[in-house]
Each structure stands twice: as C-alpha cells, then as structure tokens.
Write a protein that binds this DNA or RNA. Sequence first.
DNA 1: AAGAACTCCTGTTGGC
DNA 2: TGCCAACAGGAGTTCT
Length: 294
Amino acid sequence: MPELPEVETVRLGLEPALCGHRFVQVVQRREDLRFPLPDRFTERLTGRRVERLARRAKYILIHLDDGQVLVVHLGMTGRFSVARRATQEVQLGNYSSEHGGNARHDHLVFVMSGGAVITYNDARRFGYMLLIPERDLAENAFMRGLGVEPLSAELNAAYLARRAFGKKIDLKTLLTDQRIVAGLGNIYVCEALFRAGLDPFKPASRLATSGGRPTARTERLVGAIKRVLGHAIRAGGSTLRDYKQADGRAGAFQNAFQIYGREGAPCLKPSCRGTVLRKSQGGRSTFYCPVCQR
DNA sequence: AAGAACTCCTGTTGGC
DNA sequence: TGCCAACAGGAGTTCT
C-alpha cells in the first residue's frame, strides 16, 4: 500500500477537487471493499460539502459540513483519480484509459460541485471507508490504538526508546507496527534502517539502555525516519506498481531508494563494500546491507 | 499477553 | 506461448 508519503500525496491531490465542494452524485458499484461500505453511503454523502482534508497515519480524513468524517484507507492498491466533469462521459465508458487501472475495479465515483469526477479504484480491495461523526474519531476502533505521527515532535528518541524497551521483536517489526509509529510501511522502514545503519533483524530492545533511555542509534533512527519521509513527500511518494498520485502522475521517490528493491546491487554507503540482500521477515521482503547495518 | 501465522483479494512477474 | 508459484506497499483476527 501506499505508506505515509503516498497517502499524504493523495490527500494533497484530492484537496483542490474536494475542498469547499459538494458531492453532487455518488456512484457505488459494490457493497463492500475490505469491509462493507457504510450504510446508506451514497445518500449520506450526496449534498454534503467538504470542509477540509486531513491525514492520520495512513488514513485520509475528509471532514464534511454535517460533522461527519469520511475516513479512507487505501489498503494495498486503492487509488483515486481526478478528472473534470466535462470528460465524465468518456470516463464512464472508458476509465482504464484515464488512470491505467482496470475499470472493473472502479468501485466508487464521486461527482463534485466544482466539476471534479473522482474515481476510487482498488483491485485487491484491501482498502476501506468509514463514515463516522467527527467526535467519535479518536475512539474509533481503527484510530484508537494508533501510535505517534512520525513527522511530529511526538516521535523522538525518548518515545521510541520507551516503546522499544524490553521488546524481543526485531527492529523492523517494531517500526512497521502502527501502534508504535503510525504511517510507516515496508519500504520506508527499510530505507530508514539503512540510512541509520541499523540491522533490521536485531531486537528492538537495542533502542533503549537497560534503564529505558535512548541511545545514539535511537537518535540516528529517528532522524533517518523523519528525513526519508520528508524527502519522499517532497518527491510525491514512490510509484511501484499500483500507486499513482491523484492526478495520475507517478511519484519520484522510487528513484531515490537506497536499499529497497536493490537486491544483489552494491551497497551505496560510500566506504562500504557490501552487497544488498533480501530476506523474508514477517512474510515480507526486507532489503538490507549486512555489512554496514549492524 | 506478546508474538507468529493466517487471512482477505487480484494482478504481475519470473522460472521452467 | 503456457502454466504455476511466488510475490506485492497493509493490517485485523486468530492461534500458540
């Protein structure tokens, strides 16, 4: 799925199409994505005006004028594409030429008062949408347990040391756990660990001293996480296979990967002679340099 | 109760 | 070319 930088890029792409505009028409092509879509979904959205778009972890939060929030998670393959209403007829007949996806996976279409036609396509349907009152957001089952935002001041070495203290799980598993740091996924954890020179397979407890205090490597890791996410957002995210920005353009950060997807290639650390390895960890690929990640 | 394994679904890729 | 297995950016649920 889109990780935090991709979700943030999608949010930014949707903003001009949605903000200040009303849902004129909502077409729902199936009952469920990963979970059933909200009851009376199209009725409840139609006529509502979008006040603002926010993001929490990998969720896009679309705040409506009736106090409800449309919460969207893109799963692995969810994507939005934005077109103008003038092209709607063409679109309805031939989406695939518009966004490169298969039209059979166009599950929702939102027609906005400002003229935008927004299509949600999701081949694997791991994505989901909720429509809940804003006041219930914090206690919602999906939001409740989320950890800190990695780009906020809440992610710092002291926090990470505290959460890692005594944990036997490996470093990479800790970082992809949304309850600890919310928004990281496989790619950016690989990248951050490489940049910080840390071994993904070592126990998470190494981020804390015996007294639960942060160490130099904890500081390094926090810095690497923030830098890699910031850089990726500025590049418009990474495009591997499914992810696209809302305007259909590819992101550019995949060109800045230093470790992800580079199995067999030489390590990019200036003085390192290592070769990038790929190992399965928790059922997904971890890319790392066994020489400089210790 | 932490941690591992399994699960949802479809598409793409690489090996033979 | 065809077929099949492995893999894909997530994460909730179930198990041990």
